[in-house]
């Protein structure tokens, strides 16, 4: 099905899921080379692993700032045939403009390089269900062809929405290349570090008064597995990826055995800003919308195309996260 020699490029390997994907691909004998790029070297596996000396195995790390045109040289030099674009940042590590530049300009540079390349024949992009936005008049369940009722106009959702636009443009210009866009629900798992996991690790949790959003999670193991499958076989199209079922925020809080304080929406926003200033959490307006109205997607198309469903349901993924959280 696939050519004998395979060279895979993974962007964003300094962070957890990217690093895990790179090491899984490196362990596959069918793949000859795995090249990981990021602005900083990967640390997330060595940080708490300890026992493993070289957990990334034969992954070759190249320090590249995606916002520069250097990525084109990496792609040209290595005869890369598969690109897995993972480096979308969900929360601003530094400032919001830097995050936007990293996400949007980084993707543009990467796709520009892929468009020039003669060897790239498969592009997998990590996106998010945040592209559907979150509003009280949303349909209860989003499918891949749903238009957002309110187009996300801030933060991660907006970036991902724009990134997907560039991916569609690329797919139109290079119909010979298989492009797969995976819209992930919120990642959760023992080692996931996201605004939402930081929220659930806080000792006392504010909630938005009068709202009990429906949430969905995808376990990190399933996230890595679906990315691996997309990198190894042709699955053209856009796919939602979420664990089966939903949890209400109130259920999550009860399962987590945490205290929560319902606060009016403006106060919640204020607390979010405060937490953000302290560098503790990131509650951008799109997070506030999610914590008010929630969001649910249908992953049926993924199951049909990949012949695979996430091993963890939304509830079991959350429970797995809680179990490891308590032993930390």
């Amino acid at each position: 099905m696939s050519p004998v020699t395979r060279t895979v490029l993974v962007t964003g390997i300094s962070r957890h899921i990217g690093a895990r994907l790179a090491s899984v691909l490196a362990a596959d004998p069918a793949i000859s080379r795995v090249i990981g790029v990021d602005t900083v070297p990967p640390t997330s596996l060595t940080r708490d692993g300890g026992a493993q000396l070289n957990p990334l195995g034969r992954v070759e790390f190249v320090r590249v700032d995606l916002r520069s045109a250097d990525i084109a040289q990496v792609i040209a030099a290595a005869d890369i045939d598969t690109v897995v674009h993972m480096s979308l940042m969900s929360g601003p590590a530094g400032s919001r403009p830097a995050m936007k530049e990293h996400n949007v300009i980084g993707t543009m540079q990467l796709l520009a390089a892929c468009q020039r390349s003669e060897t790239v024949r498969r592009v997998v992009v990590r996106s998010t269900t945040a592209v559907y936005g979150s509003s009280p008049t949303d349909p209860a369940v989003f499918t891949e062809d749903s238009e957002p009722v309110e187009v996300p106009h801030t933060g991660y959702g907006k970036d991902a929405f724009e990134v997907e636009g560039y991916v569609r443009g690329y797919a139109r210009r290079r119909p010979d290349v298989v492009t797969t866009t995976l819209r992930f629900a919120n990642f959760i798992g023992p080692k996931v570090d996201s605004p939402l996991t930081r929220y659930f690790r806080a000792p006392i949790l504010p909630t938005v008064l009068g709202f009990d959003p429906r949430l969905q999670f995808v376990h990190e193991d399933d996230g890595v597995e679906v990315l691996r499958r997309a990198a190894l076989d042709d699955h053209p199209g856009v796919f939602n990826v979420a664990g089966d079922g939903v949890l209400l925020l109130s259920q999550c809080l009860r399962r987590a055995r945490r205290f929560w304080i319902p606060v009016p929406a403006p106060a919640f926003r204020f607390l979010g800003e405060g937490a953000r200033a302290l560098g503790r959490m990131d509650f951008t307006p799109d997070q506030l919308a999610l914590m008010s109205h929630g969001r649910v997607v249908d992953s049926g198309k993924l199951a049909d195309e990949f012949g695979w469903v996430p091993k963890f349901t939304t509830a079991s993924a959350f429970d797995d996260f809680l179990q490891t959280r308590s032993t930390r």
Binding site: V141, D212, C252, R254
Partner: peptide, 11 residues
């Protein structure tokens, strides 16, 4: 109290 009940996709 433990949150171990089912809610469907519509809530």
């Amino acid at each position: 109290i433990s949150g171990r009940y089912e809610v469907d996709e519509f809530g």
